[in-house]
Simulated assay, not measured.
Amino acid sequence: MKILAIADVEQSWLTTGFDPERLRGVNMIISCGDLPARYLEHVVTMANLPLLYVPGNHDTAYRSHAPEGCDSIDGRIREVAGVRIMGFGGSMRYNERVYGFTEQEMRRRVMRLAFQAKLTGGVDIVVTHAPPYGYGDMDDYAHTGFDAFNTAIEILRPAYLVHGHIHMEYGRIDRVIEHPAGTRIVNACGSYMFDL
């Protein structure tokens, strides 16, 4: 299965310069957050593919206008064409205006869903907005990852964890990092295609 992951930065080839050739063979789109609802609606309409998403820390507007035609996987497990996907939106709560959580709050969310996933056959992909702590995150609190995601990786050993939040222009950022548990951690900022 070929998957297009998107996050944080709108891509012109998916909007004003839509190029269907670049989507040839893609089976599903995953949004890792911080993209406007109207953008996701445009992408899902033009691509005519399933689009699953988690909200980013700046996606509080989703509460009043969720992306139509797209499927939220925030705090949920979904199966698409035999691929099981689990999602967690948000970042560290660094102020009250963002969609964010403390480490303890995220750990409760993750543990509940990870054990449910373990009992029902596991997951192939974990989708998050923030990265796991120590794997593609940064030193400032707003861009620190969640250690709870490392626990989920260790329990479930998914093939991939795909996240956003860390923009490529923030510095020397690795697009793909291998976790010791064998999971590939992918920073989807902008867009990134991968095969499952």
Rank of each mutant, 00 (worst) to 15 (best):
H58W: 10
H58P: 01
H58Q: 10
D59M: 06
D59V: 04
D59Q: 06
D59K: 00
D59N: 14
T60P: 00
T60G: 05
T60R: 12
A61Q: 13
A61Y: 09
A61E: 15
Y62T: 01
Y62A: 05
Y62I: 01
R63G: 01
R63T: 07
R63H: 07
S64G: 04
H65L: 12
H65Y: 10
A66R: 12
P67N: 10
E68W: 04
E68R: 15
E68T: 10
E68Y: 08
E68H: 09
G69W: 08
G69D: 10
G69K: 01
C70P: 04
C70F: 05
C70I: 03
D71F: 11
S72P: 03
S72F: 05
I73M: 07
I73R: 04
I73D: 11
D74T: 01
G75L: 06
G75I: 11
R76Q: 14
R76K: 15
R76I: 00
I77S: 02
I77P: 01
I77H: 02
R78N: 04
E79Q: 13
E79G: 02
V80Y: 09
A81K: 14
G82A: 11
G82T: 04
G82I: 04
G82R: 11
G82K: 12
V83D: 02
V83P: 00
R84D: 07
R84T: 03
I85E: 02
M86K: 09
G87L: 12
F88R: 09
G90W: 12
G90E: 11
G90R: 06
G90S: 05
S91E: 08
M92S: 03
M92T: 04
R93S: 11
Y94A: 01
Y94H: 13
N95D: 15
N95W: 05
N95R: 02
E96H: 11
E96V: 10
R97Q: 12
V98E: 00
V98L: 01
V98M: 06
V98K: 08
Y99D: 09
Y99T: 01
Y99V: 02
G100R: 08
G100M: 05
G100H: 06
F101Y: 15
T102M: 09
T102H: 10
E103S: 08
Q104A: 14
Q104V: 12
Q104W: 02
Q104K: 14
E105H: 08
E105T: 00
M106D: 00
M106N: 03
R107A: 14
R107D: 10
R107W: 04
R108D: 14
R108Q: 13
R108M: 10
R109K: 15
